[in-house]
């Protein structure tokens, strides 16, 4: 079953057309990496998928339900019940965006309790277990400012997981981290892939994308230029622009 289906997404900021008709389908348990140079539209696509930006044209469907529809005048509208869709996905930001005034435990527990209305004690136990699994068991009482960047990013992954999303988006999750800390975050994402978590990852870590993804998408200038298995995209690159882009990483 398709967890996410985006078709022919168009998005402009003023006169700058950032997405020129991009389609993306993600199946359950699939890990999709999106690569491409900065300004190519990767992050915007993710922000449209997570409803942080509104699309100009196209359709978005989660678990078979339409997020967008055309009204009788043909104008694109968003579903009135966006809350329902927000339960389906989670997003891990490049710069974490943890809540600085909440402890680590509160950062991860608060939304399941006050948004989903779940039992406080049950959520707490679950979150402590998740933190433990991510190697953050001793940091539950700490505040984000007391953690390293890598630890903060792992907390933000736990925060997203605590909502039990059907699909998890990562927007350049390691771009704000030094190489040493990058490794620990990638390890966590890899372990989620092994557990068959459905994920869409925008990343500049090519070796990681190659190792972890079922499918790799290269976006350039607002369109999908190349798409395929990691072997196809990295090993047997068809498109000249993709080859050019990947060459910069091989050097």
């Amino acid at each position: 079953m398709n967890v996410l289906k985006m078709t022919d997404i168009k998005k402009s900021f003023g006169s700058n057309e950032v997405l020129k008709g991009v389609s993306l389908t993600v199946d359950e348990g699939e890990v999709v990496s999106i690569i491409g140079s900065s300004g190519g539209g990767k992050s915007t696509l993710l922000r449209c998928a997570t409803l942080l930006e509104t699309i100009d044209d196209g359709t978005i469907t989660y678990m078979g339900d339409d997020v967008t529809y055309k009204n009788e005048k043909g104008k694109l509208c968003y579903s009135k019940d966006l809350k329902k869709f927000k339960k389906v996905f989670g997003l891990v930001f490049q710069n974490f965006n943890l809540f600085p005034h909440f402890s680590v435990l509160k950062n991860v527990c608060d939304a399941p309790v006050s948004v989903l209305g779940r039992d406080k004690k049950e959520v707490r136990e679950e979150c402590l277990e998740l933190l433990d699994k991510m190697g953050l068991g001793d940091k539950a009482k700490a505040y984000p400012c007391e953690l390293s960047g890598g630890q903060q990013q792992r907390v933000s992954i736990v925060r997203a997981l605590a909502m039990k999303p059907d699909i998890l988006f990562f927007d350049e999750p390691t771009s704000a981290l030094d190489p040493e800390l990058t490794g620990e975050v990638l390890k966590v994402i890899k372990s989620l892939a092994e557990e068959k978590m459905t994920m869409v990852i925008v990343t500049h870590e090519m070796a990681f994308a190659r190792a972890v993804s079922d499918r790799v998408i290269f976006i350039d200038n607002g369109v999908i230029v190349e798409e395929g298995t990691p072997q196809e995209v990295f090993g047997n690159t068809k498109n000249e622009r993709t080859r050019q882009f990947l060459q910069n990483y091989n050097n």
Binding site: L52, F93, L98, F99, H101, V115
Partner: peptide, 27 residues
């Protein structure tokens, strides 16, 4: 307060009022 705080709250499904009272106001 950075836009990221609002976006993180929006992604987690906090309502506008919850976002203001729980996330923004204390900071």
């Amino acid at each position: 307060i950075s836009v990221g705080q609002y976006e993180a709250a929006a992604i987690l499904g906090y309502s506008k009022a919850q976002t203001f009272v729980k996330i923004i106001l204390p900071q």
